[in-house]
Design a protein around this nucleic acid. Structure first.
Lengths: 163, 163
DNA sequence: TGCATATAGATGACATGTCATGTGGCGGCG
DNA sequence: CGCCGCCACATGACATGTCATCTATATGCA
């Protein structure tokens, strides 16, 4: 049943390695960069999602959906952020099961302080590395892979069916 | 000192979002895929690095350098893998401080069992999403960003220096 | 030789993520 | 009305990563 090549061709290997190394190197750098403002990438993402609304609050589910996080992960993260005073949990009057997450003034200060530096870093590390048309190409190819990921979510527990 | 745009242009924003979403979506998928063989991505990387040598062993430092991991992270990871019987620690005769990490027969079985499925998944998720020339372009742009990361490692604790 | 310092790696504390499971509120149906 | 099952979120156990610190060995040099 070995109807796919056992390993990648040199060109494929090259591309795969570049892809992997980029990801493994880039995120830690960005995380470390945010640490200067005592924020994790996770914190940042939550705070951005909250400040994207006019009143700085979102329903828990809405938030989870927006940033595409598992419910459990978000629950833990919010619990930690509450402890640090960055966000607050608010009850939902209509449905006792639901909850809101709201950014606190302290949280707003923190992200407003961190954002400019963060954007500058993103620019420095990624945007500036490519010319505008290259950046567009990169985005197009990235999106293509993303679509592929969406198309093939069910994991075929083994290499059973070919394509 | 705000000599860089406060935020990204729409095109830049688009590219940045694609980049982020790709990474945040892809790795978890790959990790889950490996879980079918009870291996984490970290386990897999270690085992691959070990099987890349003729005798399946490497000096600790050599290993850390090869996969570009912090020493501490590797130390913890190896400790966990030893508990699970995937690798073994061996002493170094010449220098009592140094250590070797060697793959065990059990470890070898595990990775040999997991590799084909893993490669097929990589192919399915990434390689097959792009045509060969697109894949080459993607690799080229990825490498360009990687070079940029290498060029700008010292993090400018603030937007102090001009650019 | 004999100590100061560097080096290799281990370890502890803690942040974060996943999976499985718990808990309380809601809604629907007998 | 009352119970059953679903829903939204919380929680606990555990894997993983980071940073700071510890330990033991090796090395340089008085």
């Amino acid at each position: 049943m070995n109807d796919t090549p056992a390993w990648l061709s040199p060109a494929e290997q090259h591309a795969w390695r570049a892809f992997v190394r980029l990801q493994q190197k880039f995120w830690p750098m960005l995380e470390r960069d945010l640490q200067a403002h005592k924020l994790s990438g996770a914190d940042f993402e939550i705070l951005v999602a909250l400040t994207d609304t006019p009143d700085g609050r979102r329903q828990f589910q809405d938030l989870a959906g927006t940033i595409e996080w598992e419910q459990s992960r978000l629950s833990h993260q919010i619990a930690r952020m509450i402890k640090r005073g960055l966000v607050a949990r608010e009850e939902c009057a209509e449905d006792g099961r639901r909850a809101f997450v709201a950014i606190t003034p302290a949280g707003r200060e923190r992200i407003e302080a961190a954002a400019p530096h963060h954007v500058a870093t993103v620019r420095r590390l990624v945007i500036d590395a490519l010319k505008p048309d290259e950046l567009a190409t990169f985005a197009r190819l990235s999106n293509r892979i993303l679509e592929q990921l969406d198309d093939v979510p069910p994991r075929p527990s083994s290499r059973s069916s070919r394509r």
